[in-house]
Protein backbone atom coordinates (compact mmCIF):
# COMPACT_ATOMS: atom_id res chain seq x y z
CA UNK A 1 0.00 0.00 0.00
CA UNK A 2 1.24 3.43 -0.92
CA UNK A 3 1.89 5.56 2.11
CA UNK A 4 -0.46 8.31 3.18
CA UNK A 5 2.62 10.28 4.07
CA UNK A 6 3.09 10.88 0.37
CA UNK A 7 1.30 14.17 -0.19
CA UNK A 8 0.03 13.35 -3.67
CA UNK A 9 -1.40 10.03 -2.53
CA UNK A 10 -3.26 11.65 0.32
CA UNK A 11 -4.47 14.47 -1.89
CA UNK A 12 -5.86 12.02 -4.44
CA UNK A 13 -7.55 9.87 -1.75
CA UNK A 14 -9.18 12.92 -0.23
CA UNK A 15 -10.34 14.20 -3.61
CA UNK A 16 -11.87 10.84 -4.49
CA UNK A 17 -13.57 10.47 -1.11
CA UNK A 18 -15.21 13.89 -1.44
CA UNK A 19 -16.63 12.93 -4.82
CA UNK A 20 -17.98 9.63 -3.53
CA UNK A 21 -19.38 11.16 -0.33
CA UNK A 22 -20.96 14.21 -1.96
CA UNK A 23 -22.55 12.11 -4.74
CA UNK A 24 -24.34 9.85 -2.28
CA UNK A 25 -25.19 12.68 0.11
CA UNK A 26 -26.98 14.78 -2.49
CA UNK A 27 -28.72 11.91 -4.25
CA UNK A 28 -29.98 10.51 -0.93
CA UNK A 29 -31.43 13.97 -0.31
CA UNK A 30 -33.16 14.12 -3.69
CA UNK A 31 -34.54 10.66 -3.02
CA UNK A 32 -35.80 11.61 0.43
CA UNK A 33 -37.77 14.50 -1.08
CA UNK A 34 -40.00 11.82 -2.63
CA UNK A 35 -41.08 10.58 0.79
CA UNK A 36 -44.85 10.17 0.81
CA UNK A 37 -45.06 11.04 -2.88
CA UNK A 38 -43.91 7.82 -4.59
CA UNK A 39 -46.22 6.08 -7.09
CA UNK A 40 -47.45 3.63 -4.46
CA UNK A 41 -46.98 2.83 -0.78
CA UNK A 42 -44.75 -0.17 -1.46
CA UNK A 43 -42.42 2.05 -3.46
CA UNK A 44 -42.39 4.63 -0.70
CA UNK A 45 -41.14 1.94 1.68
CA UNK A 46 -38.54 0.58 -0.74
CA UNK A 47 -37.29 3.96 -1.95
CA UNK A 48 -36.89 5.34 1.54
CA UNK A 49 -34.85 2.26 2.42
CA UNK A 50 -32.59 2.95 -0.57
CA UNK A 51 -32.22 6.60 0.44
CA UNK A 52 -31.33 5.58 3.94
CA UNK A 53 -28.68 3.17 2.64
CA UNK A 54 -27.31 5.84 0.32
CA UNK A 55 -27.10 8.42 3.11
CA UNK A 56 -25.33 5.71 5.12
CA UNK A 57 -22.79 5.29 2.32
CA UNK A 58 -22.16 9.03 2.33
CA UNK A 59 -21.63 8.84 6.09
CA UNK A 60 -19.06 6.05 5.61
CA UNK A 61 -17.08 8.14 3.11
CA UNK A 62 -17.28 11.26 5.29
CA UNK A 63 -16.13 9.04 8.14
CA UNK A 64 -13.04 8.04 6.13
CA UNK A 65 -12.34 11.73 5.49
CA UNK A 66 -12.67 12.40 9.20
CA UNK A 67 -10.06 9.71 9.86
CA UNK A 68 -7.76 11.49 7.42
CA UNK A 69 -8.01 14.65 9.50
CA UNK A 70 -10.32 16.58 7.18
CA UNK A 71 -12.65 17.52 10.03
CA UNK A 72 -15.62 15.84 11.66
CA UNK A 73 -18.17 14.24 9.40
CA UNK A 74 -21.03 16.57 10.28
CA UNK A 75 -18.94 19.61 9.45
CA UNK A 76 -17.84 18.00 6.20
CA UNK A 77 -21.38 17.16 5.17
CA UNK A 78 -23.08 20.29 6.47
CA UNK A 79 -20.64 23.19 6.54
CA UNK A 80 -18.79 23.04 3.23
CA UNK A 81 -19.71 25.72 0.73
CA UNK A 82 -21.07 25.14 -2.71
CA UNK A 83 -17.77 25.53 -4.59
CA UNK A 84 -16.17 22.95 -2.30
CA UNK A 85 -18.77 20.35 -3.20
CA UNK A 86 -17.57 17.64 -5.57
CA UNK A 87 -20.79 15.85 -6.45
CA UNK A 88 -21.79 15.36 -10.09
CA UNK A 89 -24.20 18.09 -11.18
CA UNK A 90 -26.77 15.59 -12.47
CA UNK A 91 -27.35 14.38 -8.92
CA UNK A 92 -28.19 17.83 -7.56
CA UNK A 93 -30.88 18.56 -10.16
CA UNK A 94 -34.42 18.68 -8.74
CA UNK A 95 -36.87 15.80 -9.07
CA UNK A 96 -39.27 17.98 -11.01
CA UNK A 97 -41.11 21.21 -10.42
CA UNK A 98 -42.34 22.47 -7.07
CA UNK A 99 -40.95 22.15 -3.56
CA UNK A 100 -40.83 18.94 -1.52
CA UNK A 101 -43.46 20.34 0.85
CA UNK A 102 -45.44 22.48 -1.56
CA UNK A 103 -46.96 21.54 -4.90
CA UNK A 104 -44.32 18.94 -5.81
CA UNK A 105 -44.88 17.70 -9.36
CA UNK A 106 -42.06 15.24 -9.44
CA UNK A 107 -41.02 13.25 -12.45
CA UNK A 108 -40.90 9.54 -11.72
CA UNK A 109 -39.37 8.72 -15.12
CA UNK A 110 -36.46 11.09 -14.51
CA UNK A 111 -36.01 9.64 -11.03
CA UNK A 112 -35.97 6.05 -12.27
CA UNK A 113 -33.54 6.81 -15.08
CA UNK A 114 -31.21 8.93 -12.93
CA UNK A 115 -31.09 6.27 -10.20
CA UNK A 116 -30.73 3.44 -12.68
CA UNK A 117 -27.82 5.09 -14.48
CA UNK A 118 -26.24 6.26 -11.24
CA UNK A 119 -26.50 2.81 -9.63
CA UNK A 120 -24.74 1.29 -12.64
CA UNK A 121 -21.97 3.88 -12.49
CA UNK A 122 -21.66 3.38 -8.75
CA UNK A 123 -21.35 -0.36 -9.25
CA UNK A 124 -18.57 0.09 -11.81
CA UNK A 125 -16.65 2.35 -9.42
CA UNK A 126 -17.16 0.04 -6.45
CA UNK A 127 -15.94 -2.98 -8.40
CA UNK A 128 -12.77 -1.06 -9.12
CA UNK A 129 -12.51 0.30 -5.56
CA UNK A 130 -12.59 -3.21 -4.13
CA UNK A 131 -8.98 -3.41 -5.39
CA UNK A 132 -8.03 0.08 -4.31
CA UNK A 133 -4.52 0.70 -3.02
CA UNK A 134 -6.15 2.61 -0.15
CA UNK A 135 -7.29 -0.27 2.00
CA UNK A 136 -10.00 1.47 4.10
CA UNK A 137 -11.69 2.44 0.85
CA UNK A 138 -11.46 -1.11 -0.49
CA UNK A 139 -13.16 -2.35 2.70
CA UNK A 140 -15.90 0.27 2.41
CA UNK A 141 -16.47 -0.72 -1.22
CA UNK A 142 -17.14 -4.32 -0.22
CA UNK A 143 -19.73 -3.29 2.37
CA UNK A 144 -21.46 -0.76 0.15
CA UNK A 145 -21.61 -3.20 -2.77
CA UNK A 146 -23.77 -5.55 -0.72
CA UNK A 147 -26.49 -2.92 -0.45
CA UNK A 148 -26.02 -1.54 -3.93
CA UNK A 149 -26.83 -4.99 -5.30
CA UNK A 150 -30.44 -4.53 -4.17
CA UNK A 151 -30.64 -0.92 -5.32
CA UNK A 152 -29.55 -1.91 -8.78
CA UNK A 153 -32.07 -4.72 -8.85
CA UNK A 154 -34.79 -2.32 -7.76
CA UNK A 155 -34.08 0.30 -10.41
CA UNK A 156 -33.62 -2.35 -13.11
CA UNK A 157 -37.15 -3.62 -12.46
CA UNK A 158 -38.57 -0.11 -12.72
CA UNK A 159 -36.48 0.75 -15.79
CA UNK A 160 -37.53 -2.35 -17.71
CA UNK A 161 -41.14 -2.27 -16.61
CA UNK A 162 -41.74 1.34 -17.63
CA UNK A 163 -39.83 0.94 -20.89
CA UNK A 164 -41.81 -2.19 -21.72
CA UNK A 165 -45.14 -0.61 -20.86
CA UNK A 166 -45.03 1.43 -24.06
CA UNK A 167 -47.26 4.46 -24.61
CA UNK A 168 -46.89 7.48 -22.37
CA UNK A 169 -44.56 5.64 -19.99
CA UNK A 170 -42.06 4.81 -22.70
CA UNK A 171 -42.22 8.33 -24.12
CA UNK A 172 -41.50 9.80 -20.69
CA UNK A 173 -38.69 7.32 -20.13
CA UNK A 174 -37.02 8.13 -23.46
CA UNK A 175 -37.21 11.82 -22.62
CA UNK A 176 -35.68 11.14 -19.23
CA UNK A 177 -32.88 9.08 -20.77
CA UNK A 178 -31.91 11.92 -23.06
CA UNK A 179 -32.10 14.38 -20.14
CA UNK A 180 -29.88 12.19 -17.93
CA UNK A 181 -27.36 11.55 -20.72
CA UNK A 182 -26.96 15.31 -21.21
CA UNK A 183 -25.23 15.48 -17.84
CA UNK A 184 -23.96 11.99 -17.32
CA UNK A 185 -20.35 12.60 -18.30
CA UNK A 186 -19.90 14.40 -15.00
CA UNK A 187 -21.02 11.31 -13.05
CA UNK A 188 -18.40 9.17 -14.81
CA UNK A 189 -15.64 11.74 -14.43
CA UNK A 190 -13.06 11.61 -11.65
CA UNK A 191 -12.10 15.24 -12.06
CA UNK A 192 -8.74 17.02 -12.07
CA UNK A 193 -6.77 14.22 -10.37
CA UNK A 194 -8.15 11.33 -12.40
CA UNK A 195 -4.78 10.43 -13.95
CA UNK A 196 -3.09 10.43 -10.53
CA UNK A 197 -5.89 8.33 -9.01
CA UNK A 198 -5.36 5.73 -11.72
CA UNK A 199 -1.57 5.71 -11.57
CA UNK A 200 -1.67 5.41 -7.76
CA UNK A 201 -4.09 2.50 -8.23
CA UNK A 202 -6.76 4.12 -6.09
CA UNK A 203 -9.36 3.44 -8.78
CA UNK A 204 -9.36 2.75 -12.52
CA UNK A 205 -9.10 5.78 -14.77
CA UNK A 206 -11.99 7.59 -16.45
CA UNK A 207 -11.71 5.63 -19.70
CA UNK A 208 -11.64 2.20 -18.11
CA UNK A 209 -14.62 3.06 -15.90
CA UNK A 210 -16.56 4.42 -18.83
CA UNK A 211 -15.87 1.31 -20.87
CA UNK A 212 -17.07 -0.93 -18.06
CA UNK A 213 -20.18 1.20 -17.75
CA UNK A 214 -21.01 0.83 -21.45
CA UNK A 215 -20.47 -2.93 -21.22
CA UNK A 216 -23.03 -3.11 -18.43
CA UNK A 217 -25.59 -0.86 -20.05
CA UNK A 218 -25.58 -2.12 -23.62
CA UNK A 219 -27.22 -5.51 -22.89
CA UNK A 220 -30.03 -3.73 -21.01
CA UNK A 221 -30.83 -1.63 -24.06
CA UNK A 222 -30.39 -4.55 -26.46
CA UNK A 223 -32.95 -6.55 -24.51
CA UNK A 224 -35.38 -3.66 -24.85
CA UNK A 225 -34.67 -3.31 -28.59
CA UNK A 226 -33.52 0.25 -28.09
CA UNK A 227 -30.27 1.47 -29.64
CA UNK A 228 -27.64 2.27 -27.02
CA UNK A 229 -25.67 5.34 -28.02
CA UNK A 230 -23.69 5.88 -24.86
CA UNK A 231 -22.84 9.47 -25.80
CA UNK A 232 -22.75 11.54 -22.68
CA UNK A 233 -22.30 15.25 -22.08
CA UNK A 234 -22.08 17.66 -19.20
CA UNK A 235 -24.37 20.54 -20.00
CA UNK A 236 -25.02 21.91 -16.54
CA UNK A 237 -21.45 22.13 -15.27
CA UNK A 238 -18.51 20.09 -14.02
CA UNK A 239 -19.29 19.13 -10.46
CA UNK A 240 -15.89 17.54 -9.87
CA UNK A 241 -14.37 20.98 -10.44
CA UNK A 242 -16.75 22.66 -8.00
CA UNK A 243 -19.11 23.98 -10.69
CA UNK A 244 -22.72 23.73 -9.58
CA UNK A 245 -26.22 24.97 -10.28
CA UNK A 246 -28.46 27.21 -8.23
CA UNK A 247 -30.34 24.03 -7.32
CA UNK A 248 -27.47 22.92 -5.11
CA UNK A 249 -27.66 26.21 -3.22
CA UNK A 250 -31.26 25.55 -2.35
CA UNK A 251 -30.66 21.90 -1.53
CA UNK A 252 -27.84 22.79 0.86
CA UNK A 253 -29.92 25.51 2.46
CA UNK A 254 -32.52 22.86 3.33
CA UNK A 255 -30.04 20.18 4.34
CA UNK A 256 -28.21 22.51 6.71
CA UNK A 257 -31.08 24.66 7.98
CA UNK A 258 -31.09 23.32 11.53
CA UNK A 259 -27.34 22.65 11.68
CA UNK A 260 -26.57 26.27 10.76
CA UNK A 261 -28.64 27.67 13.64
CA UNK A 262 -25.82 26.51 15.93
CA UNK A 263 -23.01 24.44 14.39
CA UNK A 264 -21.27 24.19 17.76
CA UNK A 265 -24.27 22.76 19.61
CA UNK A 266 -24.75 19.06 20.34
CA UNK A 267 -27.81 17.87 18.44
Amino acid sequence: MTELTEPLFKKAVVELLYQLADDDFILAYRGSEWLGLAPHIEEDVAFSSINQDTMGHAAMYYGLLEQLGEGDMDTLSHARGISERKNAVLLELPNGSGHYLKEPRYDWAFTVVRHFYYSHAKKVKLESLKHSSYEPLAHAAVKISMELYYHLMHWTVWFNQLMNAGGEAKRKMLEAISRVEQDFLDVCSLGPLSAEMASLKLIDGDDALMQAFHENMKPVFDALFIPYKGEFQQHSGKGRYGEHTQELHQALATLTEVYRTDPAAAW
Binding site: Y29, S32, E33, L35, G36, I41, D44, V45, S48, S49, N51, Q52, M55, G56, A58, A59, Y62, M73, D74, S77, H78, Y100, T254, L255, E257, V258, Y259, W267
Partner: peptide, 22 residues
Amino acid sequence: VPKAPTLKRKLGIMAKVQDEMG
Protein backbone atom coordinates in the same frame (compact mmCIF):
# COMPACT_ATOMS: atom_id res chain seq x y z
CA VAL B 1 -35.84 14.24 7.16
CA PRO B 2 -33.44 16.38 5.09
CA LYS B 3 -33.22 19.08 7.75
CA ALA B 4 -32.09 16.79 10.57
CA PRO B 5 -28.96 18.50 11.94
CA THR B 6 -26.36 15.72 11.77
CA LEU B 7 -25.69 12.65 9.65
CA LYS B 8 -26.65 10.40 12.54
CA ARG B 9 -29.94 12.21 13.03
CA LYS B 10 -30.60 12.19 9.30
CA LEU B 11 -30.14 8.42 9.23
CA GLY B 12 -32.26 7.98 12.35
CA ILE B 13 -35.24 9.93 11.11
CA MET B 14 -35.00 8.35 7.65
CA ALA B 15 -35.21 4.91 9.25
CA LYS B 16 -38.09 5.95 11.46
CA VAL B 17 -40.24 7.43 8.72
CA GLN B 18 -39.54 4.43 6.52
CA ASP B 19 -40.86 2.20 9.30
CA GLU B 20 -44.02 4.31 9.49
CA MET B 21 -44.66 3.89 5.78
CA GLY B 22 -44.05 0.18 6.24
